[in-house]
Amino acid sequence: MSVNPKTGGPVSRNRVGGNPVLVFGATGQQGGAVASALRANGWAVRAFVRDPASARAKSLASLGADMAVGDLADSASIRRAMKGIYGVFSVQPSSGQGAVYGVSDEEEIRYGKAIADIALESGVEHLVYTSVNAAGEEKTGMGHFDSKSEIEAHIRRLDLNSTIVRPAGFMEMLMLPGMGLDKDIFTFFLREEQRGQIIAVQDIGKIVATIFSAPERYVGRTIEIAGDELTAARLRESLSRAAGTPIAYHRFADSLLEQDPFLGRLASLIDEDRLTGHADIRALDREFGPLLRFDEWLAGPGKPLLEDARRANDAPIALR
């Protein structure tokens, strides 16, 4: 048993046979990575899913995760899923993911607050919420970032043992269609002299699993996380090496950034150093074990994504 830093009482670390961790977004990128990492570390996992017959849900079930069928808009289904739960990993869809999810910023906030409130009501011992590295007291002007700041503030007001992680941009995001890799070009936000931090999604899972394993170290903390830091030159070199052919680098054209308010504001946040990331990567390596660098990721889990991006054929930009 560990000491609960908030109450001074015991905190259990439940593995297989004990109370599980409930993972929201379990069929998505972050939730899926967290569920897989928890199972690999011997935790019992309950996955909150809308469709247990989906391929991703079946994949989780094959790892030994239990399915809790529900909907974020249905608080009764969340309450049912939280019965007998030790911990909760909280992530919600957001407007930044595009129209495919159909979620407004207001809905994201409502869902994030409801999960925290029900966790408190249900006696959950540890909630881990995943936010974004641009979150903070000062608004960004991007609804899907400021929504996370509001959820963070709500969680901190509750008498609930919690940890907040603020990931950098995902390495997986760099392989989205529309960046030009099918034409031996990579187009992104960084100016030549700028740097930006990124993280592999599987490392988010690794970090969160470690946090659940040591509540005495992590309850009450907000941790910015990243696995590598890139410049335009690094992007050029790494992508060229991985693709086996020279890849040119260009920043998004000013005309595009002026025409598209979403992309334009993202570029501004990078120029303002709000979205570039300020994680201490070496300290994170020491605390959580070596995290993937971009070159390692490209040669490993990112390789099929790079191959797909190289075959994209004029697909539209999809950064949300």
Rank of each mutant, 00 (worst) to 15 (best):
L22I: 05
V91W: 04
G70L: 00
N19G: 07
D71C: 03
G31C: 12
S62P: 02
A76R: 13
W43K: 15
Y101D: 11
W43A: 15
D71H: 02
A37C: 00
K58T: 10
V11Y: 06
T27N: 09
A55N: 12
G32I: 12
A57S: 15
D51K: 10
F48G: 09
V11A: 15
L63Q: 15
Y86E: 13
V69N: 01
V16H: 13
A99C: 00
A99V: 07
R50K: 07
F48M: 13
W43P: 00
G8H: 11
A61C: 13
S36L: 03
R13N: 13
S75D: 09
A47W: 11
S62Y: 14
A53Q: 15
G31K: 03
P20F: 02
A76S: 12
S104P: 01
S94G: 09
S59I: 05
V88A: 05
N41S: 14
Q29D: 14
F24M: 09
G87H: 11
I109K: 09
G25H: 05
G102L: 02
A57L: 03
A33S: 12
A53N: 04
I109Q: 07
A40Y: 10
N14G: 12
G84F: 10
V45R: 02
R15T: 03
R15Y: 15
A81N: 03
A68I: 06
Q29K: 14
